[in-house]
Design a protein around this nucleic acid. Structure first.
Lengths: 252, 252
DNA sequence: CGGGTATTTGACGACTGTCAACGCCAGTGG
DNA sequence: CCACTGGCGTTGACAGTCGTCAAATACCCG
């Protein structure tokens, strides 16, 4: 991991420097570079690395930056007063997270690094400016928001109406589909990386770790999946999709 | 109701005409007018009226228009395969609903008129154009989306982690707060309009009508509210807010 | 006054949570 | 090299919230 960090530094040598991470104080290694976001090529951005199990940002903290995820998985979450967490979404490479609109000053949710993570950061103020000056960026942000909203609606439907088995099947089917787009599924289409703990999967689906485990066992016994260390082997994708009522593409 | 429709027609006489509503076929009275949305003063828009218990648009239907709600309450929902509905949000006057981003062609959710409703409609294509040409509109749409997202996150937290009592308390506290901003709360701050059925409240909170009723009875027995016909009397707002863990303003 | 919808209540059952214990595995330090 | 330790996964017993089914009551509108 440390090696990879070094590599990033070296690759962008001419334009990089090390500074304190404004988001987390804990000795987070940070690389700042003149970089790009999509089409806005003149904005100053920064690359950050966050180790697994550390937070990229915390709910309620001042929302200084938004991020494009370069590598790794993030868990977006909200915390309940009793300390339990509700997972909102898993962010995968390419996803854009942490943007807040003009006037909002703090994050509405937290972002936890499931794996080691590399992100590209943008100052919120720059993004707000870009909306004014670059219509393409404005369009992209509304598009990103719309898609995220649609998935939130699916999640709400699941949390409110679906059984535990359906919710987990939906979550797995969704991850499978998104990982496929990222070419992260094995060639035979059966093995997908799964760096989450069962506890995190439970947070996403509104279940306790114990019950999550039971449901996974049932899915295993029914021949839908095989759980492996850090991966899941999908034996019967169609049934998984049908059980979870996952609509690929249209209404995720 | 019909009278009010007439009034709308007359007020905008010079620029109005009657056409079939493209969204619903059922004899919906529609007034089309040269009108305004916020600052985009040159766009052609239309006013529609939808009777209580009818849908403004249905999930999966072609998303021709987006709407600003002028009067009445809307229930945004997603339908589960077993026919049950999950309420996503209650839209109140001033809310903007039904917008989909470029590339999306159909609504991700449905919109049901809780009461008789008046909306102002905008063609999606016009809105997309406006994002390109009018930065203020782009900003507004991202702001609206961000706020809606934050409330979705709160809803997900509730559906995933909170008890039935907490979810209903949160929903009532949220409505109370939003209605207060619209000056719809009685002067003594106790009575708020409540045109929803208990079944709809259950759809919003992920509960069955029966259990919704039981929870409401408990809240009544605990001296938090008094249910009346078409209204709710809030006896102890602070306790309602605390029970539902409602954060006014910041993280709704 | 009558029919249909919404609310209310009871009995019962199932899904999911809670508590507790154990096993497995990886990383760590001696 | 091996024992230790801590996190994660697994399983059982039990409890409680919430859903289901059913029926009675209340209320609205014509």
């Amino acid at each position: 991991m440390q090696a990879q960090t070094q590599k990033l530094t070296e690759v962008r040598e001419p334009h990089t420097r090390c500074v304190e991470c404004p988001i987390r104080q804990k000795a987070l290694f940070q690389v700042v570079a003149e970089d790009y976001i999509h089409k806005a090529e003149t904005r100053r951005t920064a690359q950050y690395r966050v180790g697994a199990r550390h937070t990229l940002y915390q709910e309620g903290a001042p929302a200084l930056m938004a991020f494009t995820l370069y590598s790794g998985w993030l868990l977006l979450y909200r915390t309940h007063s009793d300390g339990s967490r509700q997972g909102l979404r898993v962010a995968l490479p390419g996803d854009f997270v942490g943007y807040v609109s003009t006037g909002d000053s703090s994050y509405s949710h937290g972002a936890l690094a499931i794996t080691d993570v590399t992100v590209c950061g943008f100052r919120q103020g720059d993004l707000h400016d870009m909306i004014d000056t670059e219509p393409d960026i404005a369009r992209q942000i509304t598009t990103i928001h719309s898609r995220y909203l649609a998935t939130c609606e699916s999640t709400m439907l699941g949390l409110g109406r679906k059984s535990a088995e359906q919710r987990i099947a939906h979550t797995l089917a969704d991850l499978y589909h998104r990982l496929q787009l990222l070419s992260e599924i094995s060639e035979d289409g059966r093995v997908m990386p799964f760096p989450m703990t069962q506890e995190m999967l439970g947070e996403l689906t509104g279940l306790t770790p114990v019950h999550t485990n039971r449901v996974l066992r049932r899915l295993r016994e029914d021949g839908l999946i095989i759980g492996q260390r850090q991966k899941i082997e999908v034996l019967d994708l169609p049934r998984l999709v049908e059980l979870g009522e996952y609509r690929v593409g249209r209404l995720p």
